[in-house]
Nucleic acid binder design. Sequence first.
DNA 1: CGCAGATAGGTTGTGCACAATTGAATTGTG
DNA 2: CACAATTCAATTGTGCACAACCTATCTGCG
Lengths: 154, 154
Amino acid sequence: MTETVSPGDSPVDAPRLDRQVCFAMYAASRAATAAYRPMLDELGLTYPQYLVMMVLWEDQPRGVRELGQELGLDSGTLSPLLKRLESLGFVERRRSAADERRVEVFLTAAGATLSARATGIPQRLADAAGLSAAELDQLRETLGRLTAALQSGR
Amino acid sequence: MTETVSPGDSPVDAPRLDRQVCFAMYAASRAATAAYRPMLDELGLTYPQYLVMMVLWEDQPRGVRELGQELGLDSGTLSPLLKRLESLGFVERRRSAADERRVEVFLTAAGATLSARATGIPQRLADAAGLSAAELDQLRETLGRLTAALQSGR
DNA sequence: CGCAGATAGGTTGTGCACAATTGAATTGTG
DNA sequence: CACAATTCAATTGTGCACAACCTATCTGCG
């Protein structure tokens, strides 16, 4: 008895990779992260760490839960990530005195300074994207609706 | 000396999360994977495993390197993933006799059968996406150009 | 007050991603 | 033929994601 299937046969109705929006998003997202990498390396950050720093640059301190809501990440991802950011010297975590369950994440001076060095990154990436500003805008808007629709169905 | 920065200050030029296409892709990609999860759970596959199976459903056997080119993944990701697919009984890996460096990945009968059960998945996801077919088409096309542009600049 | 349920954050375990390295097999070139 | 360069897959190490579970703290209600 042959274990495997004879080569070359392609089931007619099998899902095809090249038609799938989801694979396009998966591939594009990884390509974008890869394009960020050399720039973020200079700052000593990974892409998810950069996202957390962006949230903090906008307003701080923030609780772990708040960060998670902004980014769609849970404590299982954020707790170790924040520890790494702390050991890098970019943030400090402190238990809230008012609510001992909360951990507030503060920027250090080094973490705040980093925002200046990050200023040009989005523009450099937009340039590498090869799309017009209008296309990027529309892409962002469409992806936002898509994300919302996918999340609502749960 | 205070370690942290006084709360509330927001550097003017810091990159802002809500304007970034890259975050929109990152979030949408994770949302799509999450939307797939309950359907793929029924098949016993993760999303990357499903991608590999789709490539094999189209044509098999395939070398590890070919799979990697289709999906943009390297052997560091694929080798353990393929071992898991093998221990699940969906594929079989064999050293090529003609070129002992190559490992060819074959579908087993169970792996081939799985494609029938996966038939409806893309449509179910498209329905959950809340976008028109035209919008999904355009999104896929735009993401394809974006991925190509980001990869070319390396 | 007392305590059930909710909430916040952390831990564990699995499975990607990806850089860097390794080792075996093959190819190209003299 | 010899052998350096290349190709292929696997391995190692780091860092996400995310489910499942855990503990401590807080809140509301009787």
